[in-house]
Nucleic acid binder design. Structure first.
Length: 582
RNA sequence: GCGCCCGUAGCUCAAUUGGAUAGAGCACCUGACUACGGAUCAGGAGGUUUGAGGUUCGAAUCCUCACGGGCGCGCCA
């Protein structure tokens, strides 16, 4: 049950009765939301202000008519016009009791919606080059993408989590050559790693595995043949490395899409270019010298094959074929996104790092072109994460191959804290990640704070079992608890927070902003801790009342609802909800 | 030079996507432990939302221009 959605439909039908001429487009702009200031009421709507102008009426006049209408609604105890034409509602306790019952009935599904209507959405995230282990820079996008995927799935979308493997570029040749050196090293040679090669020692085991499998036979082979073998082996090894890094954060993709499979004669890129040509989206032309960017001085004015990206909102048209005749990275990417579209995805989301912000427009142009505007592409940019320790920037070693890795971070602070902290911030602003803070078990640390709230619900049940050993508080018993006994404003306020969960999820899913889930869960934890502490001042507010088992049961139902919603939120975030903290 | 993102309390961040008096935590000050684990809570103080215009019933949010910070710019990937 979503109280806000319920009243949104009541407001809409009231308007239809009062002003039949109001159209659907206008109704769609009406929102029913909690007022910023709780003193204004439980619900607030802008309906009168939205509708007044097109009707040629005064907002307060419309508001007054609506207020009259809602005076007959049994669920409303107070309704009034405020400010320029807001309508504020105060709801009857019975509504909040219904919310509590619906949480008990729906359990893990409380908050789940059919917003997406089962439509397929492709979410591509991480897509780090398969040339080594994941470093900390990849971590934010990985967590963001994975959480967004869970959020969308929870909101009724058919989600595919996808990873694009950039295994076709020249960096892979370099990777293969670097691995070849490690292979020679495994055979006993003394090696020196030239600059430009990958120096990381994660390639050592790959070289050893090649020795174990081939002995020294690779040295005797013609180079192209040996390179092909090494490339296959090292790519597979790097992919396993990345998968195991991601697994540390419980991140698992459904599809690993190889760029290599797009290349080759008659491959997707060939077919895509052919298709683009048939739609007149490709031409031969010249590109302007990049302003201020031609640092190498290797710009050469020549005629080349260009994609009409400007027709789809990009700043300039983009090259598809390099001077050596091979395809550009972007050409492959167009083919890749056409592939996504042909697989049935009309909604695509790409999660990229800040260093790819310049790529957004052309990516969106590509999707518009290959789908003839039938598909949409949202690109979410995750800004940089600055590692901190005790308020000081965490200095990373400049020695290459010695970056802070994802695995380092998880080992240091754990998967839960890593995930939660990275989601406790909008994605489009840079953030500080303080190692020391995340390990503290205090109020300062939001991960701990939320998990403690969850653990506290369990301690309350444990205590209830001790104080009222005869009381049955199984799930079945809680479902038939006398919820009506819950009447104090402190308790009802807590239910009000619980009632906001469904609309929080929906709004977050529409905006593609999973961080809102983290903030909501934190708010709920605060409300719960606050209520808990009231029991210290006022014994009557304690959850367990030995003299009144029925009231106790009703309050345990409230505690259980809080527990359930925290779990629902943490599940989307991919953070565990422990029963007790050590 | 151009594009994208950001600029909110001393610090780290929110703000229901255009809503009412801009809110939390930290730090600072004051209070609450014979305890449903106080690993918490209640309260105080702290703001010209970088600046200047504009749009409208209404702006931190949208538009324009400055200023400051970050990331980019190509036939790289």
């Amino acid at each position: 049950m979503d109280v806000f959605a319920l009243f949104a439909s009541r407001v809409a039908s009231a308007l239809k009765v009062l002003y039949p001429e109001v159209g659907a487009d206008l109704l769609a702009r009406i929102v029913v939301e909690p007022p910023r200031d709780a003193a204004h009421g439980d619900l607030s709507t802008n309906a009168a202000m939205v509708v007044a102008k097109p009707l040629g009426k005064n907002p307060r006049e419309v508001a007054t008519a609506l207020v009259e209408h809602f005076k007959h609604d049994a669920d409303v105890t107070l309704v009034e016009v405020a400010g320029p034409g807001f309508i504020n509602f105060r709801l009857a306790d019975a509504i909040w009791h219904q919310v509590l019952r619906s949480i008990a009935a729906q359990g893990a599904d409380y908050g789940r919606s059919n917003l997406g209507g089962g439509e397929a959405v492709n979410i591509e995230y991480v897509s780090a080059n398969p040339t080594g282990p994941m470093h900390v820079g990849h971590t934010r996008g990985a967590v963001f993408g994975d959480t967004l995927a869970s959020l969308m799935a929870y909101s009724g979308y058919e989600v595919t989590r996808e990873y694009y493997i950039n295994d076709a570029g020249s960096q892979i040749d370099t990777l293969a050559r670097s691995t070849m050196l490690r292979y020679r090293e495994a055979l006993g040679e003394t090696i020196e790693i030239p600059s430009g090669f990958y120096p990381g020692d994660y390639l050592v085991p790959v070289g050893q595995a090649l020795k174990a499998e081939y002995g020294d036979k690779l040295l005797a082979m013609p180079e192209p043949e040996a390179t092909a073998i090494v490339k296959d082996r090292v790519l597979a090894a790097m992919l396993e490395l990345i998968k195991s890094d991601l697994a540390l954060l419980n991140i698992h993709h459904d599809v690993f899409f190889s760029e290599r499979q797009l290349h080759g004669q008659g491959g997707d890129i060939d077919l895509t270019l052919e298709w683009l040509r048939s739609k007149d989206m490709v031409y031969q032309g010249h590109l302007e010298r990049p302003k201020g960017g031609d640092t190498d001085g290797d710009y050469e004015d020549r005629e080349q094959t260009l994609f009409r990206a400007t027709n789809f909102g990009d700043d300039v048209d983009r090259a598809l074929i390099k001077s050596d005749g091979s395809y550009t990275y972007f050409a492959a990417d167009i083919a890749y996104h056409r592939n996504k579209f042909l697989r049935g995805f009309k909604h695509m989301i790409n999660v990229l790092g800040a260093d790819h912000s310049g790529y957004v427009k052309r990516l969106q142009a590509a999707v518009k072109a290959v789908s003839l505007n039938a598909a949409d592409m949202d690109v979410r940019i995750c800004q940089l994460v600055r590692l901190m320790k005790n308020g000081e920037p965490f200095k990373m070693s400049k020695r290459s191959g010695d970056l802070v890795t994802l695995a380092d971070v998880v080992e240091e602070v754990g998967a839960d804290a890593t995930r939660f902290m990275l989601m406790f911030r909008r994605n489009d602003a840079s953030m500080d990640f303080d190692f020391a803070l995340v390990k503290e078990q205090t109020r300062d640390n939001p991960v701990f704070y939320v998990q403690y709230a969850h653990a506290r619900t369990f301690s309350i049940f444990r205590n209830a079992g001790k104080e009222l050993p005869a009381l049955d508080f199984s799930a079945e018993a809680l479902k038939v608890a006398e919820i009506e006994r819950i009447v104090t404003s402190a308790e009802l306020d807590l239910i009000r927070v619980l009632a906001a969960w469904p609309r929080t999820v929906t709004a977050a899913a529409i905006a593609h902003e999973p961080h809102r889930i983290a903030f909501y869960v934190h708010d709920l934890a605060a409300a719960f801790h606050g209520f808990w502490a009231k029991g210290k001042d006022d014994v009557q507010l304690r959850f367990v009342n030995v003299e009144d088992p029925k009231l106790t049961l009703a309050r345990l139902a409230l505690v259980n609802a809080v527990r359930q919603v925290i779990v629902n939120g943490l599940t989307i975030l991919g953070v565990s909800a422990p029963d007790e903290l050590s």
